Computed example of a mutant assay.
Amino acid sequence: MGNTVVRRTGVRVAAALLVVLSSVTACGGGSGHGRGEDATSEADSERSASRTPETLLSAPDLERVAVTGKDLAGYEVNPEPARAAASHRKVAPASCGPIPMAMALNSPYPATTRIARLFSAKDHSPGVSMSLSSFSAEDGKRVVDAVRTAAKECRTFYDAFTDFQYSSVEVRPDPGYGDESVSLRFIQILPAVGKEVAPVKVPQAVVVVRKGTAVLMFHSFNNPSRRKGPAGVPDAVVKGQMEKLGDLGKSG
Protein backbone atom coordinates (compact mmCIF):
# COMPACT_ATOMS: atom_id res chain seq x y z
CA MET A 1 0.00 0.00 0.00
CA GLY A 2 2.77 2.42 0.99
CA ASN A 3 4.73 1.79 -2.21
CA THR A 4 1.58 2.37 -4.26
CA VAL A 5 1.03 5.77 -2.63
CA VAL A 6 4.68 6.72 -3.21
CA ARG A 7 4.48 5.76 -6.88
CA ARG A 8 1.21 7.65 -7.30
CA THR A 9 2.72 10.75 -5.68
CA GLY A 10 5.78 10.53 -7.94
CA VAL A 11 3.60 10.32 -11.05
CA ARG A 12 1.52 13.31 -9.97
CA VAL A 13 4.60 15.41 -9.25
CA ALA A 14 6.03 14.54 -12.68
CA ALA A 15 2.73 15.48 -14.32
CA ALA A 16 2.70 18.80 -12.43
CA LEU A 17 6.21 19.56 -13.68
CA LEU A 18 5.08 19.00 -17.28
CA VAL A 19 2.25 21.49 -16.76
CA VAL A 20 4.68 24.09 -15.43
CA LEU A 21 7.22 23.53 -18.19
CA SER A 22 4.53 23.71 -20.88
CA SER A 23 4.05 27.36 -19.99
CA VAL A 24 7.58 28.09 -21.20
CA THR A 25 6.57 27.38 -24.79
CA ALA A 26 2.83 28.08 -24.63
CA CYS A 27 1.34 29.24 -27.93
CA GLY A 28 0.95 33.00 -28.10
CA GLY A 29 -0.30 35.69 -30.42
CA GLY A 30 -3.72 35.75 -28.78
CA SER A 31 -4.40 32.10 -29.57
CA GLY A 32 -3.79 30.76 -26.05
CA HIS A 33 -6.00 27.86 -25.04
CA GLY A 34 -5.52 27.94 -21.24
CA ARG A 35 -7.33 30.12 -18.72
CA GLY A 36 -4.15 31.86 -17.66
CA GLU A 37 -1.88 30.90 -20.52
CA ASP A 38 1.09 33.03 -21.47
CA ALA A 39 0.44 35.08 -24.58
CA THR A 40 2.88 36.92 -26.82
CA SER A 41 2.21 40.10 -28.77
CA GLU A 42 3.64 42.14 -31.61
CA ALA A 43 4.22 44.95 -29.11
CA ASP A 44 6.60 42.72 -27.15
CA SER A 45 8.59 41.96 -30.28
CA GLU A 46 8.73 45.60 -31.32
CA ARG A 47 9.81 46.63 -27.81
CA SER A 48 12.66 44.12 -27.86
CA ALA A 49 13.75 45.14 -31.36
CA SER A 50 14.01 48.81 -30.37
CA ARG A 51 16.83 48.25 -27.87
CA THR A 52 20.14 50.05 -28.18
CA PRO A 53 22.38 47.66 -30.18
CA GLU A 54 25.33 47.77 -27.79
CA THR A 55 23.20 46.44 -24.91
CA LEU A 56 22.03 43.33 -26.73
CA LEU A 57 23.39 39.79 -26.62
CA SER A 58 22.65 37.56 -29.58
CA ALA A 59 21.44 33.97 -29.56
CA PRO A 60 24.89 32.78 -30.73
CA ASP A 61 26.42 34.74 -27.82
CA LEU A 62 24.21 32.92 -25.33
CA GLU A 63 24.73 29.52 -26.95
CA ARG A 64 28.48 30.01 -26.79
CA VAL A 65 28.50 30.62 -23.03
CA ALA A 66 25.86 28.09 -21.99
CA VAL A 67 27.40 25.28 -19.94
CA THR A 68 27.45 21.76 -21.31
CA GLY A 69 27.92 18.36 -19.72
CA LYS A 70 31.64 18.72 -20.43
CA ASP A 71 31.77 21.87 -18.29
CA LEU A 72 29.79 20.56 -15.34
CA ALA A 73 30.75 17.25 -13.76
CA GLY A 74 27.89 15.09 -12.56
CA TYR A 75 25.23 16.51 -14.86
CA GLU A 76 23.81 15.77 -18.29
CA VAL A 77 22.86 19.06 -19.95
CA ASN A 78 20.28 19.30 -22.73
CA PRO A 79 18.69 22.24 -24.57
CA GLU A 80 15.05 23.07 -23.90
CA PRO A 81 12.57 25.18 -25.93
CA ALA A 82 12.32 28.83 -24.91
CA ARG A 83 10.51 31.99 -26.01
CA ALA A 84 11.76 35.54 -25.58
CA ALA A 85 8.30 37.13 -25.30
CA ALA A 86 7.04 38.51 -22.00
CA SER A 87 4.78 36.35 -19.85
CA HIS A 88 1.15 37.39 -19.40
CA ARG A 89 -0.04 34.57 -17.16
CA LYS A 90 -2.89 35.18 -14.75
CA VAL A 91 -1.98 34.96 -11.07
CA ALA A 92 -3.94 35.93 -7.97
CA PRO A 93 -2.89 38.22 -6.43
CA ALA A 94 -1.48 39.69 -9.65
CA SER A 95 1.46 41.19 -7.75
CA CYS A 96 2.75 37.64 -7.11
CA GLY A 97 2.99 36.92 -10.86
CA PRO A 98 6.79 37.24 -11.19
CA ILE A 99 7.25 34.19 -8.92
CA PRO A 100 5.53 31.55 -11.10
CA MET A 101 6.88 33.34 -14.17
CA ALA A 102 10.42 32.82 -12.89
CA MET A 103 9.56 29.23 -12.01
CA ALA A 104 8.66 28.84 -15.70
CA LEU A 105 11.93 30.65 -16.65
CA ASN A 106 10.15 33.79 -17.86
CA SER A 107 9.31 37.31 -16.70
CA PRO A 108 6.83 40.19 -17.21
CA TYR A 109 9.38 41.87 -19.52
CA PRO A 110 10.31 40.68 -23.02
CA ALA A 111 13.84 39.44 -23.55
CA THR A 112 15.68 40.19 -26.77
CA THR A 113 16.65 36.52 -26.96
CA ARG A 114 16.47 33.52 -24.64
CA ILE A 115 17.80 29.96 -24.49
CA ALA A 116 17.06 27.24 -21.92
CA ARG A 117 18.81 24.18 -20.54
CA LEU A 118 17.83 21.17 -18.43
CA PHE A 119 20.44 19.80 -15.99
CA SER A 120 19.85 16.15 -15.09
CA ALA A 121 21.92 14.91 -12.16
CA LYS A 122 23.71 11.62 -12.80
CA ASP A 123 23.28 10.64 -9.14
CA HIS A 124 19.49 11.08 -9.51
CA SER A 125 19.37 14.05 -7.16
CA PRO A 126 16.95 16.84 -8.17
CA GLY A 127 17.60 18.36 -11.58
CA VAL A 128 17.65 22.03 -12.53
CA SER A 129 15.98 24.03 -15.30
CA MET A 130 17.69 27.22 -16.47
CA SER A 131 17.03 30.07 -18.85
CA LEU A 132 19.74 32.45 -20.06
CA SER A 133 18.32 35.65 -21.52
CA SER A 134 19.43 38.98 -22.93
CA PHE A 135 17.59 42.14 -21.82
CA SER A 136 18.13 45.85 -22.09
CA ALA A 137 20.11 47.09 -19.10
CA GLU A 138 16.94 48.73 -17.76
CA ASP A 139 14.67 45.71 -18.15
CA GLY A 140 17.29 43.31 -16.80
CA LYS A 141 17.25 45.20 -13.51
CA ARG A 142 13.45 45.29 -13.54
CA VAL A 143 13.24 41.51 -13.95
CA VAL A 144 15.27 40.84 -10.80
CA ASP A 145 13.52 43.58 -8.84
CA ALA A 146 10.08 42.22 -9.81
CA VAL A 147 10.93 38.75 -8.45
CA ARG A 148 12.50 40.17 -5.30
CA THR A 149 9.51 42.45 -4.59
CA ALA A 150 6.96 39.70 -5.22
CA ALA A 151 8.84 37.28 -2.97
CA LYS A 152 8.90 39.82 -0.13
CA GLU A 153 5.22 40.72 -0.44
CA CYS A 154 3.61 37.34 -1.23
CA ARG A 155 3.13 34.33 0.98
CA THR A 156 0.46 32.46 -1.00
CA PHE A 157 -0.85 32.74 -4.55
CA TYR A 158 -2.85 30.92 -7.24
CA ASP A 159 -1.53 30.35 -10.78
CA ALA A 160 -4.46 30.06 -13.20
CA PHE A 161 -2.31 28.56 -15.98
CA THR A 162 -1.26 25.53 -13.94
CA ASP A 163 -4.39 25.60 -11.74
CA PHE A 164 -2.16 25.11 -8.68
CA GLN A 165 -2.02 26.86 -5.35
CA TYR A 166 1.33 27.92 -3.87
CA SER A 167 2.25 28.76 -0.30
CA SER A 168 5.08 29.45 2.14
CA VAL A 169 6.97 31.88 -0.12
CA GLU A 170 10.28 32.67 1.57
CA VAL A 171 13.09 34.98 0.47
CA ARG A 172 16.45 33.33 1.11
CA PRO A 173 19.72 35.15 1.91
CA ASP A 174 21.20 36.80 -1.18
CA PRO A 175 23.57 34.20 -2.69
CA GLY A 176 25.76 36.96 -4.11
CA TYR A 177 25.89 35.84 -7.74
CA GLY A 178 26.62 38.28 -10.57
CA ASP A 179 25.73 41.97 -10.23
CA GLU A 180 22.61 41.08 -8.24
CA SER A 181 20.69 37.96 -7.36
CA VAL A 182 17.65 36.76 -5.45
CA SER A 183 16.85 33.32 -4.05
CA LEU A 184 13.47 32.06 -2.87
CA ARG A 185 11.65 28.93 -1.79
CA PHE A 186 7.96 28.09 -1.85
CA ILE A 187 5.55 25.15 -1.87
CA GLN A 188 3.45 23.92 -4.78
CA ILE A 189 0.22 22.31 -3.57
CA LEU A 190 -1.26 19.44 -5.60
CA PRO A 191 -4.85 18.80 -4.46
CA ALA A 192 -5.76 15.43 -2.96
CA VAL A 193 -7.00 12.90 -5.52
CA GLY A 194 -8.82 9.63 -5.00
CA LYS A 195 -7.78 7.89 -1.78
CA GLU A 196 -5.20 10.51 -0.86
CA VAL A 197 -6.19 12.09 2.42
CA ALA A 198 -4.11 15.23 2.06
CA PRO A 199 -2.74 17.47 -0.70
CA VAL A 200 0.78 16.76 -1.94
CA LYS A 201 3.20 19.55 -1.06
CA VAL A 202 6.11 19.93 -3.49
CA PRO A 203 9.06 22.11 -2.35
CA GLN A 204 10.26 24.52 -5.05
CA ALA A 205 13.32 26.77 -5.34
CA VAL A 206 14.13 29.62 -7.72
CA VAL A 207 17.30 31.67 -8.13
CA VAL A 208 17.44 34.72 -10.43
CA VAL A 209 20.76 36.33 -11.34
CA ARG A 210 21.65 39.40 -13.39
CA LYS A 211 25.08 40.09 -14.80
CA GLY A 212 25.04 43.19 -16.96
CA THR A 213 22.39 42.61 -19.62
CA ALA A 214 22.25 38.85 -19.08
CA VAL A 215 19.60 37.40 -16.76
CA LEU A 216 19.69 33.78 -15.62
CA MET A 217 16.81 31.93 -13.96
CA PHE A 218 17.24 28.59 -12.21
CA HIS A 219 14.42 26.35 -10.95
CA SER A 220 14.57 23.11 -8.99
CA PHE A 221 12.13 21.08 -6.89
CA ASN A 222 12.06 18.08 -4.58
CA ASN A 223 9.80 15.14 -5.42
CA PRO A 224 8.40 14.39 -1.94
CA SER A 225 8.13 10.69 -2.77
CA ARG A 226 11.93 10.59 -3.10
CA ARG A 227 13.41 13.45 -1.08
CA LYS A 228 12.25 15.26 2.03
CA GLY A 229 13.00 18.79 3.10
CA PRO A 230 13.17 22.15 1.30
CA ALA A 231 14.32 22.43 -2.30
CA GLY A 232 17.44 24.27 -3.41
CA VAL A 233 19.33 25.15 -6.57
CA PRO A 234 22.82 23.56 -6.38
CA ASP A 235 25.55 26.16 -5.99
CA ALA A 236 27.76 24.16 -8.38
CA VAL A 237 25.26 24.61 -11.22
CA VAL A 238 24.92 28.36 -10.77
CA LYS A 239 28.64 28.95 -10.28
CA GLY A 240 29.51 26.74 -13.23
CA GLN A 241 27.24 28.78 -15.50
CA MET A 242 28.39 32.12 -14.11
CA GLU A 243 32.04 31.23 -14.66
CA LYS A 244 31.42 30.34 -18.28
CA LEU A 245 29.32 33.47 -18.79
CA GLY A 246 32.36 35.51 -17.82
CA ASP A 247 32.15 39.16 -18.85
CA LEU A 248 29.78 38.59 -21.79
CA GLY A 249 26.83 40.29 -20.11
CA LYS A 250 28.86 43.22 -18.74
CA SER A 251 27.33 46.56 -19.68
CA GLY A 252 29.71 48.90 -17.91
Rank of each mutant, 00 (worst) to 15 (best):
E76W: 11
T68L: 04
D174E: 13
A160Y: 11
V147Q: 03
S134K: 01
R64P: 09
M130E: 12
S168A: 15
R142C: 05
P93H: 07
P110W: 00
S183A: 15
P175Q: 03
A104R: 08
S87E: 09
T113F: 09
R83Y: 12
M130T: 02
E80A: 14
L72G: 14
P126S: 12
L62V: 06
R185H: 14
L56D: 06
T55D: 15
S168N: 15
K90D: 14
R89A: 03
Q188N: 07
S168H: 14
S129M: 09
N78L: 00
T55V: 11
V143R: 04
M103H: 04
V182H: 02
T55K: 08
M103W: 06
M103E: 12
G176K: 04
A121F: 03
E170Q: 12
T52L: 12
N78Y: 00
A86F: 04
F135Q: 02
S136W: 02
P98V: 05
T68Q: 03
D145Q: 13
T162Y: 06
Y177G: 05
A84W: 04
S50G: 07
M103F: 04
Y75Q: 08
R172F: 10
K122A: 10
V67R: 09
A85M: 10
V144A: 01
L57A: 02
A111F: 03
N106G: 12
V171T: 13
E153K: 15
E180Q: 07
S129K: 06
A59P: 03
V144Y: 00
S183N: 14
I99S: 00
P53T: 14
A151Y: 01
A86M: 03
V169Y: 01
A111M: 07
Y166E: 11
V67E: 08
R89F: 02
A85K: 06
R64Q: 15
L184E: 08
K122V: 12
E76L: 15
S58N: 11
T149H: 06
R114F: 01
A150V: 09
C96G: 10
L56M: 15
V143P: 01
S131V: 03
P100S: 05
G127D: 08
A82P: 03
S181K: 02
E153F: 10
L62Q: 00
P108L: 05
L184Y: 06
R83L: 15
A151V: 06
T149D: 09
K70E: 14
D163M: 11
A151Q: 01
P79N: 01
V144G: 00
D61L: 10
E180F: 01
F186E: 05
R155S: 15
P53W: 14
D163F: 07
R114N: 04
T162D: 11
E54C: 08
S131Y: 02
S120C: 11
P126D: 12
A82Q: 09
F186G: 05
F164E: 07
L132E: 03
T52N: 13
G178R: 03
S183M: 09
T113Y: 07
A150P: 09
S136I: 04
V144L: 05
A151E: 08
S136N: 03
Y166F: 15
P126W: 10
